[in-house]
Amino acid sequence: MNGFLSIRNLTVRLKNGSPILRSVSLDVAAGQVHGLVGESGAGKSMIGKAVLGTLPRALSVTGGEIWLDGTNLMSLSPTERRRRIGATAALIPQDPLTALNPSKRIGPQITRRLVDILGWSRQDAQDRALELLGEVHIPDPARVMRNYPHELSGGMRQRILIASAFAAEPRLIIADEPTTALDVTVQKQILRLIADMQTRHGTALLFVTHDLGVVSKVCDTLSVLYAGKVVEDARMHRFFMRPIHPYSAALLAATPTYTDPTGSLTPVSQAVIDGVEAEVAQHDARRAQ
């Protein structure tokens, strides 16, 4: 399997040397949706940040390769890398309330980069923004372009961020828990919107989430992450029928189902956690040799 985005043995460490990502490898095929699941702190967001070059300053990539459209990003200079990412990839952030600049109007926040970075004409950028705002079902796009973020609801802002992500027709979009910060009633709409937009534009999508229910609705393939290590890599259908790794199976069993809302929750058992922890320790020991 070799994808539009190919991550090979990516290792990210804290400045003090402790590993955050442990030799992560995964592929996102062109036009496909790849889910990245794991509990909080498993490092799933860090993979997206490593690809986009927005890791916190305390972290750094200490090994591995990130291939985007046939180019190893790690071999590029920081400036080249930034340009490449800006032209090829985009981010749908987690929290729409903090991801728009409060002192700027919506319009420029979508159009400026098209003009500044990609060299579009102002008129083209303007037309494109209006078109995409319409596509994400924003009523009266021309008026919204003149609004400030604080004048709009969370759901509206997330739609705007989705429109902005698709504006330059990127070939890869990284969605970092894009529904987590939203109201439950809005979550479903936004999820469907992202899936629709992905299908229509044929964009590869790396979908970071802790919600297996969400994964089952939108993804073609997925990776399960534990403590910065990929424990299972699978096609969607096979994974839900027959998860291979005990941790994956336990995670799947722990997902509450809508068909049985009164059923009790099944926590991941200690035996499973001990098992996967032992694997991680083994991995670290092998590295240390």
Binding site: G53, G86, A89, L91, P93, T98, A99, N101, R113, L161
Partner: peptide, 10 residues
């Protein structure tokens, strides 16, 4: 977040 987002835009 909006600063991070601007970085990803290039």
């Amino acid at each position: 977040d909006y600063v991070t987002l601007a970085r990803t835009k290039g």
